[in-house]
Design a binder for these strands. Structure first.
Lengths: 195, 195
DNA sequence: AATACAAGCGGACCACGGTCCGTTTCGCCT
DNA sequence: AGGCGAAACGGACCGTGGTCCGCTTGTATT
């Protein structure tokens, strides 16, 4: 009776001990491999071997290679979300909404640049994750509301977040000869026009 | 001496007759397969077999699967660009710049929705193609200039195009419970705020 | 402690994208 | 016409992502 009744817990009926151990081992193995040779080294076979388990186990735990990438990203994303919810201003609560919004953009730009390789490797699994885009969109939407912006805030939030996407940034900075600072200035100007 | 001198032609030193024949056969085979069973049926082996050539030939012509997809898209994209350059208003020249810009958005939305599967399958090859994003960005930039908008027009153009990207549309319409009409309304409102 | 059963595990197996290199074909030049 | 170099061809081959199914292990129950 030490574990909560199934009816009271969330959907997943808990994970068996060995499964949890393997998940941790796999994530660690993946992180090590990536530190060594980048995302290209993240072969399912390689990760499995390094963690000392069979390949089937990797797929059982993460569903696909993209799922594994998404799990690796989750750590950073969770940290970032924590910074938004309860971190220090101007990203966290307490600052002027406009300052928070601009800090959001700068922070998101940094995150996307730092994790670009993983995010691209995670592909659709990451993109379709409601907990990611959904959180950012909700946050921006609330800030827009605080700023007294009128109109379809759900759409405006999405439209402000879209130019911060990894492919767009890659195009602008890696191919379009813009600096990160110019991109951020551009985005700031965009925000000022919208609010 | 019937062919122009190499110095006068563009970079590619022309394509051999058999190569051109095979390219056409492969594109047709690919189009047929896609009409039958969607992008999933577009296996390199399947396309090659259907066209009656070896697999190596497909890679020689298109470089990769994504390259093949991009080539399939090129037809539609070229038609669309022609519509922008010399088609009837409001998309083509002759209408008020704002009307042209809004027509651009609507038209681009349609195109991206229609070709979504192919565009996603083309992945980076399509995204990095300057002739595609570059053209759209330049067009929007010119329209913004005509409208007398000030600021970093290059960035603003990109920022207006970003929310029309396939992944964003998919998120909004397929997962976010918005209709295409709502998305278009939202984009229109975004444009009005920016200009 | 013994039992029962679900959950997890492993690695052989498959399909597909991509490469490579010996052979064939094209098209120009004499 | 015949010869020659370059371009194109084809299909065997490889690595990787993903599936499948018989076996093992953990956990709840008595």
């Amino acid at each position: 009776m030490s574990r909560p009744l199934p009816l009271l817990t969330g959907a997943p009926p808990a994970e068996r001990a060995d499964a949890a151990r393997n998940r941790a081992a796999l994530l660690e193995a993946a992180a090590e491999l990536m530190a060594g040779c980048g995302v290209a080294a993240l072969t399912m076979d390689a990760v499995a071997t390094r963690a000392g388990v069979g390949k089937g186990t990797v797929f059982r735990r993460f569903g696909s290679r993209e799922g594994l990438m998404a799990s690796l990203l989750n750590h950073r994303e969770a940290e970032w979300q924590a910074g938004v919810i309860s971190g220090p201003p101007p990203l966290g609560p307490g600052a002027d909404p406009l300052d928070r919004l601009l800090a959001f953009g700068a922070s998101r730009l940094r995150l996307h640049r730092d994790q670009a390789a993983l995010i691209e490797a995670a592909g659709a699994v990451w993109g379709e994750n409601h907990a990611v885009l959904g959180f950012a969109a909700l946050h921006v939407r609330l800030l827009l509301a605080e700023l007294g912006v009128e109109g379809d805030l759900r759409y405006l939030a999405t439209a402000l977040i879209a130019p911060l996407g990894v492919p767009v940034l890659r195009q602008q900075i890696d191919h379009g000869q813009m600096t990160e600072a110019q991109v951020l200035d551009g985005w700031t100007e965009l925000v000022r026009r919208v609010v």
